[in-house]
Design a protein around this nucleic acid. Structure first.
Length: 797
DNA sequence: CAGTGAGCGAGCTTCCGCTTGACTT
């Protein structure tokens, strides 16, 4: 009976699937779902999940001698999709290749045709720019052929990237450290960070004095008002400040001039991948990969359009929907339909800007993060179609009698809010905002009007060093330079952090003093004040390995490390796409300079460890140097050639071989430090990866932050050791007499079993006290061996 | 999960762009 049902189902399926006349293949499954709704029953829409084939992993996949002949293979994780598509394509009467219209999309269509062995007579290539019924039907009525020139441009891109990555990386393994990587995109990305760090280190801050006056006047209602104004001159030194304030003691103040100017502000374009990442970082504090993961969920739920795009364009449908929405929300005078155009280099614009699927959906149901990101996308898209904000700017100059200098007060009033009603774009302002930034309304002022002086304060201000990059501001820079694509910004930033070329860190600021002079009630006073400067949050820093690799590549591969390299070859790829250039000659052109550089470097480049000799150790008279060791940056006293072995010390977190001083390096050698004996075993203070520690009887006790490891006495150390013992005793939940090595302990994440220095987790819901020795042994038995750390990196497929 | 910092030298690492889940802790 069940057999009969199965047979029936099989036949039914066969019959039904044979009925599908048309197979449409798109790149994304979410898109497939949407499109299927627009097309009739005769269409089945499937997804390729992006590229299905790639260059062979082994032996580079390119036969360079044979005119760069590529060998492709179906990627391991795409075998299933390809098999399924092959089967469906066989059954269909027509296969429609509907991947994106850009270089990569064209290549996907071509690879599909090749890998699925599609019959040319029943294969059609279509593209559409909007996911609407009209657009799709129009595309179906106007099929094209696969554009082989565009495909060749993609092949050239792909092959060049493989050649760069797979020929340069192995050089790094030999000359610097195993498992490192280099590539057209990642290596210049790191360079941006390294160069910025050097600019910051070289930066010499200069100071001057900014003068702010507070003036009073009585308005028409008899009420006293104050206005704040900044002097048009910044003084270079204290003498000039004193001289000016001295003059001011006798001065009177009056309005010399009042200028009113209308102004306007326009909304920003709707989001692209890059601007979404920037705003989500500034407004919501998300990392770029976080933003992309949340956006992906919104896309899959059908709330937003595609999130990997470099286009600021909105579909007609969206423009109309926005117009209707704004009209019903705020009225027709808030509407202004705008078409934005892309200004970033190398944009391919296969998609729309990122926008809500439905403009009238103000909020969505779902997680908190999804809701917040959606709100941002909705506001930005709608605001982009709203009227300019209109404002009136007032600038008043204040004359100081007996002085050349003038004060300037400015105010701003919004006379029509326009798009500001909905959305204000954030900026990456570093440090101080200008006092004039908080513009507000000025009271009515008349030329010649006399003002009273409440106070004049001159504050020492320092010039700002260049800002360190955040993930998001780095993405903006990459986009500006045309390096990388929307789909790779987040992965690239993860890669350079995984390689430890770059770390994202917080840094404490340092205290700085500044002078302040003030004049109030005819008295001049001065004060020295302090402020915290240079504190950083989630900023990108280059550790030593990043610097060493960068310098090595910069020295030997100047062409690839040029910021314009990508932009220049993109021109060539465009020429291939338009049929003006053979793709193989573009590659030959590149390779004729690249290959000698590879050979030269392999042969002649010295091993690079970033060594710097800082000076001599006063105790031994031997040279003290810093360099990259096998486990990270180290300081070393003496050399390998000495009869006595050199002594070593690891650099601390935050220290760099590039900036460490001799004094700081000498400090490192003061640890480990032996305090004395306790219970016949020595007590040693040291410093490790997790900070300073006390070691006794091969046990470690951490020294809490804020306590100086140089100051700890033997007595204090013994106390900490005893305290730790008590804590350990308290953590023991259960022990077994017949097996003292096996214990049930209480840890940070709950109870666990400890046996022979290894830990085993106890399943949730189990009462740890109820476990018998046999139970514990069973758990240990059944726990799989952990993969060894440090070997192969975590990888997909 | 902490102190090392050479070395017998097997066999491995690596790119960019297009797309989503499937794995454990």
């Amino acid at each position: 009976m069940s057999h009969e049902i199965a047979l029936f189902a099989k036949n039914f399926w066969k019959k039904n699937s044979a009925m599908i006349e048309n197979l449409v293949i798109v790149e994304s499954p979410a898109k497939a779902k949407t499109i299927e709704k627009f097309l009739g029953k005769n269409f089945q829409v499937k997804s390729s999940f992006g590229h299905i084939r790639d260059l062979k992993k082994k032996d580079s996949g390119i036969d360079i001698a044979n005119n760069f002949k590529p060998s492709y293979e179906v990627q391991a994780d795409k075998k299933k999709v390809v098999t399924e598509l092959k089967k469906l394509a066989k059954e269909a009467s027509t296969v429609w290749l509907a991947s994106d219209e850009d270089r990569e999309g064209e290549a996907i269509a071509w690879h599909l045709k090749e890998a699925l062995k599609l019959d040319p007579s029943k294969t059609k290539r279509i593209v559409f720019h909007e996911i609407t019924k009209d657009a799709i039907m129009h595309a179906v009525e106007h099929p094209k052929d696969i554009d082989q020139d565009l495909v060749n441009a993609q092949q050239a891109r792909r092959i060049l990237d493989r050649i760069v990555g797979f020929e340069v990386s192995p050089i790094l393994w030999k000359k610097v450290k195993p498992s490192l990587s280099a590539g057209r995109v990642q290596s210049v990305t790191v360079k941006l960070i390294v160069e910025r760090e050097r600019e910051i280190q070289a930066f010499k801050s200069e100071s001057n004095f900014r003068v702010i006056g507070h003036f009073t006047l009585v308005d028409e209602n008899g009420k006293e008002q104050t206005i704040k104004a900044e002097l048009d001159t910044r003084f270079k030194n204290e003498k000039a400040v004193q001289k000016f304030l001295e003059e001011c003691r006798q001065s009177t103040y009056s309005i010399e001039n009042v200028v009113k100017k209308p102004g306007k502000r326009s909304p920003a374009a709707p989001f692209t991948t890059s601007t979404l990442q920037q705003e989500a970082s500034r407004k919501l504090g998300y990392s770029v990969s976080q933003t992309m993961a949340i956006a992906q969920r919104l896309y899959e739920a059908g709330f937003i359009t595609y999130m990997r795009t470099d286009s600021v364009n909105l579909s007609k449908l969206a423009l109309n929907a926005a117009k209707a929405e704004i009209t019903s929300m705020a009225g027709a005078k808030y509407v202004k339909t705008r078409n934005y155009s892309t200004k970033s280099k190398g944009a391919q614009e296969a998609h729309e800007a990122i926008r809500p699927s439905y403009m009238d959906k103000h909020e969505i149901e779902g997680g908190n993060q999804e809701q917040r990101l959606y709100e941002l996308i909705w506001k930005r898209a709608v605001a982009s179609q709203m009227a300019d904000a209109e404002l009136e700017k007032t600038t008043a100059t204040i004359k100081v009698s007996g002085s050349k200098q003038k004060f300037v007060a400015s105010g701003e009033v919004i006379t029509f809010d326009g798009f500001l009603r909905l959305y204000i774009e954030s900026t990456d302002d570093e440090g101080e905002t200008t006092q004039n930034g908080n513009e507000s309304l000025l009271p009515p002022l008349e030329v010649g009007q006399a003002l009273g002086s409440q106070s004049i304060v001159a504050t020492e201000r320092f010039s700002q060093r260049p800002p360190r990059y955040t993930e998001a501001s780095l993405v903006r820079k990459l986009e500006e330079l045309g390096i990388g694509r929307p789909s790779t910004y987040a992965p690239t930033i993860s890669t350079i952090q995984n390689r430890e070329y770059v770390v994202k860190e917080d840094r404490d600021g340092v205290e700085r003093t500044y002078k302040e002079y003030s004049l109030a009630d005819g008295e001049i006073a001065s004060a020295t004040k302090t402020e915290i400067t240079g504190a950083e949050k989630k900023k990108l820093f280059p550790p030593d390995i990043g610097i060493v690799v960068n310098d090595f590549l910069d020295e030997h591969f100047k062409d690839i490390m040029d910021y314009n390299f990508t932009a220049n070859i993109e021109v060539e790829f465009d020429n291939i796409a338009s049929g003006k250039l053979q793709w193989t000659s573009a590659l030959q052109d590149f390779y004729k300079d690249f290959q000698p550089a590879v050979e030269e470097t392999v042969k002649n480049a010295e091993r690079q460890v970033g060594e710097r000799v800082l000076g001599t150790d006063p105790k031994s008279g031997k040279p003290l140097s810093v360099r990259l060791g096998r486990f990270g940056p180290i300081a070393q006293i003496g050399t390998q050639d000495d009869e006595e072995k050199p002594t070593f010390a690891s650099l601390l977190k935050g220290q760099s071989i590039e900036t460490i001083t001799l004094e700081e390096a000498l400090e490192l050698f003061k640890l480990p430090r032996t305090l004395g004996d306790f219970e016949d075993k020595t007590v040693v203070i040291g410093i490790g990866r997790f900070g300073p520690y006390i070691r006794h009887n091969s046990k470690f006790v951490s020294i809490p932050k804020g306590e100086d490891p140089m100051e700890i006495t033997l007595e204090e150390a013994i106390e900490k050791i005893k305290a730790k013992r008590i804590q350990e005793e308290l953590n023991k939940l259960k022990t077994f007499e017949e097996e003292p090595e096996l214990q049930i302990l209480k840890g940070r994440f709950g109870p666990y079993i400890s046996y022979k220095k290894k830990n085993y987790k106890i399943a949730k819901g189990t009462d740890p006290l109820s476990l018998s020795l046999e139970d514990c042994r069973k758990i240990i038995e059944e726990t799989p061996e952990k993969p060894k750390r440090g070997g192969a990196r975590k990888k997909k497929s």
